[in-house]
Design a protein around this nucleic acid. Structure first.
Length: 445
RNA sequence: GUGGCUGUAGCUCAGUUGGUUAGAGUACCAGGUUGUGGCCCUGGGGGUCAUGGGUUCAAAUCCCAUUAGUCACCCCA
């Protein structure tokens, strides 16, 4: 109180490292993408699901060992040991097991939500980020055609997002594992992990790592020959069938892959949108069959923008029921960040949903508010500038937010029961007597 | 968990071999201009130079520590 100035201590406004928040124009774009994804998922009849961000630690960490557990935000309040979810699949497993008796199977759900991973942040990698998941869970069994439908959903989603041409790459874990076994590999999990790095570190480095693991030179060569098979999916399938590998797991994987490809045609997925890529392995260990990754054709360096696969036992930690499933996840925060960085989505323009800014003059507030309500009810997002001030400031408000039309409402407008709108880009003004008339005019601009 | 780089105005950055009262652009506020914005002109507010210590007659500048941010490895989306 010694100071004459009324000083208060100021806390530096900042957020935790690795967390992000968006500015209005970015958020508008992000939300639009989210809405598109949601609409596409629902168009396939998937049910929305929301689960708590916090779960009991014993539930969340039932399976994960080592690496994942280290990245989980975990703490206690009172006697409760809790943790933030690190993906949407584990909560789904718990949910399905818990509500098994009340759900209708196959259970088709989508979930768009935030997940948390306490790892060191870096470019395009966040500690809190959105995942958009879609999964189909069967009760006891789930036909292979579901694996094909997932590709159809990926196709529809990225078609709707309009971020450029893309390719869904498909592989099968059984095929890979069977192949490895046929060549005497014992540690198939580790080999999968190494093979998954092919695109990143190259064939030579992978070969080196395989040899270090104890894989024989002949086997390593065979594996690299397999993963480098190219061509369209029909050619690759033909080559795989010619291989004459008697391993049963390999043959099952091959027939699954064959079936998925055949059924994708039935879903009407354009041939250039999908391919078999035997390099795709996926790091996560719970996949047991089909695996997917999706790449943008013009920006393969962004990496997979949508990944997933088939798992035989979703909820084995929570129930004795056999619940096989297949699903995918879009890492939306990362994808959005990359799209902005690469300039694929342009952020110019609107910072608000508002389409019209109503500016009432002296004595017309009541009329203006009623008019705004009329436009709103007709589906036009709009707002009224309600503060005192100079006209310049009011127009500046519309200008800065990118609101396309401003409507100054004076006594003349009120007397004539009309609205005079100004196109903020062209400066042109026009008068309409109804919302319908406005819509017609808007179409022409 | 390991390593590299960087902290100057809300934001982007200047700041000479260490030398007076730390600048610019932009953004913000006010006025020029109370029924028509963007441009222009004038003025204004805004800084513990990340924090703490050290060297020096003198530190934004050199040294040390701390802290924050950032990028990469690991792993993943």
């Amino acid at each position: 109180m010694a100071d004459t100035k009324n000083e208060r201590s100021i806390v530096e406004p900042s957020i935790l490292a690795g967390f992000i928040e968006l500015l209005p124009k970015e958020q508008m774009m992000f939300t639009r993408m989210q809405d598109t994804i949601k609409a596409t998922f629902e168009s396939y009849g998937f049910i929305p699901l929301d689960t708590p961000v916090l779960e009991k630690s014993e539930v969340l960490l039932a399976k994960s060992g080592g690496d994942t557990a280290k990245q989980v935000y975990r703490f206690t309040k009172g006697d409760t040991d809790m943790a933030l979810r690190f993906d949407l699949t584990v909560p789904l497993a718990r949910y399905v097991a818990q509500h098994y008796g009340e759900l209708v199977f196959p259970f088709r759900r989508y979930h768009i939500g935030k997940v948390y991973r306490g790892e060191r942040p870096q470019k395009g990698r966040f500690r809190e980020f959105y995942q958009c998941d879609i999964d189909i869970i069967g009760n006891g069994s789930l036909g292979i055609i579901n694996d094909a439908e997932i590709v159809s959903i990926i196709n529809s989603t990225f078609e709707a997002l309009q971020i450029g041409e893309f390719t869904v790459m498909i592989n099968n874990r059984k095929l890979l594992n069977g192949f490895f076994e046929a060549y005497g590999v014992t540690d198939t999990v580790e080999v999968l992990r190494i093979v998954d790095k092919l695109d990143k570190i190259g064939e030579d480095a992978v070969r080196k790592e395989l040899l270090e693991l104890g894989v024989s030179a002949a086997s390593a060569d065979a594996i690299l020959t397999l993963t480098s098979l190219g061509g369209d999916y029909e050619e690759i399938l033909a080559r795989l069938k010619e291989m004459d590998i008697s391993n049963e797991t390999f043959q099952i994987g091959l027939s699954e892959l064959d079936a998925v490809c055949a059924q994708m045609k039935a879903f009407g997925i354009p041939k250039e949108r999908f391919t078999i890529n035997l390099k795709i392995a996926r790091g996560l260990d719970y996949y047991t069959g089909t695996v997917y990754e999706t790449y943008l054709k013009d920006y393969p360096e962004l990496g997979s923008i949508c990944s997933g696969g088939r798992y035989d036992e979703l909820a084995s930690n929570y129930t004795k029921q056999s619940l096989p499933g297949v699903g995918i996840s879009i890492g939306l925060s990362r994808l959005f960040y990359q799209l902005c960085q690469a300039g694929i989505v342009s952020l110019g323009g609107r910072k608000t949903p508002s389409e019209i800014l109503f500016i009432p003059m002296q004595g017309t507030m009541g009329y203006t508010l009623a008019k705004a309500q009329e436009f709103r009810q007709a589906g036009i997002p709009c707002e009224t500038y309600m503060n005192e001030g100079k006209m310049g400031k009011k127009f500046g408000y519309a200008d800065k937010l990118g609101i396309p039309f401003a409507a100054v409402i004076g006594e003349d407008e009120m007397a004539g029961n009309v609205v005079t709108l100004k196109n903020m880009t062209t400066g042109e003004q026009f008068t309409v007597g109804s919302v319908a008339e406005y819509k017609t005019f808007r179409e022409k601009n």
